[in-house]
C-alpha cells in the first residue's frame, strides 16, 4: 500500500497549527483531571477495593449456624487440591469426635498453605459438606513463610459462619421422629 503524503501548506510548515493543537490537547487533559472528570487510578490502600460476589479469594473453613465445625475430615479437598496446599490430619480411631451430635468426626488439624494455594476453588466445589469456601480476602501478608500456613483455628476464625442445610442434625431429628412415630397415633 502506498500512503499518499500531502505537501504541507506554508501555514502548516510554520509549526504553529501543530503547536496550538498540541497545547489544546494537553490543556484539556489537565483541566479534565483537576476538575475530576478524568477517571484516574484507584488509590488502593486508602480507597478499599470492592470485591464482587463470586470472587475467588482465600479458602477458609466455615462453621454452621450452631457454631460447630462443618468439616467432616473426608479429605476430598486434600486429594483434589492441584498444588497440594491443603494438609489434613484426621482424628484417627481414638481421636476427638465431632463437636456436634450425629456427625462422625472432624479434622484434628487442617492446614492451608496460602503460599501454595492457587485460589482455583476446587476444594469448595468438591466439598460434600459445604465446609470450605473461597472468601473475598485477596491481600494475605505475613512476615515469615510459617505465618502463611493457616491452621484450623485460624481458618475457622476467618471463615465465620455459613448457614444452609444442617444435614446431620436433620438426620438425627428424623431418626428421633422415626422412633416416636407409632406412639403419636
Amino acid at each position: 500500500m502506498i500512503v499518499k503524503r500531502n505537501e504541507l501548506t506554508w501555514f502548516e510548515r510554520l509549526y504553529l497549527p501543530a503547536l496550538v493543537g498540541g497545547l489544546k490537547v494537553t490543556a484539556r487533559h489537565f483541566f479534565n483531571n483537576i476538575t475530576g472528570k478524568t477517571k484516574v487510578t484507584q488509590q488502593y490502600p486508602e480507597e478499599p477495593t470492592k470485591v464482587l460476589p463470586g470472587y475467588r479469594g482465600a479458602p477458609y473453613l466455615v462453621r454452621d449456624q450452631d457454631g460447630a465445625t462443618k468439616c467432616v475430615s473426608c479429605q476430598l479437598c486434600e486429594f483434589i487440591c492441584p498444588p497440594k496446599a491443603i494438609r489434613m490430619t484426621p482424628p484417627g480411631a481414638a481421636g476427638q469426635p465431632a463437636d456436634r451430635p450425629n456427625a462422625e468426626k472432624m479434622p484434628k488439624e487442617f492446614e492451608i498453605n496460602m503460599l501454595r494455594c492457587i485460589f482455583c476453588g476446587l476444594c469448595q466445589e468438591v466439598c460434600p459438606e459445604e465446609a470450605i469456601f473461597l472468601k473475598s480476602d485477596f491481600s494475605l501478608t505475613g512476615l515469615a513463610r510459617g505465618e502463611m500456613v493457616y491452621n484450623k483455628e485460624k481458618l475457622l476464625a476467618l471463615g465465620g459462619t455459613h448457614g444452609g442445610v444442617q444435614k446431620w442434625k436433620h438426620k438425627l431429628e428424623e431418626a428421633k421422629e422415626q422412633e416416636t412415630f407409632p406412639v403419636k397415633v
Binding site: T26, F30, V40, T41
Partner: peptide, 13 residues
C-alpha cells in the same frame, strides 16, 4: 504534578 495531571495520572501524593 502537572505532568501527571496532563497524562491523566494522580502524581506524587
Amino acid at each position: 504534578k502537572v505532568s501527571a495531571l496532563i497524562q491523566d495520572r494522580v502524581g506524587p501524593n
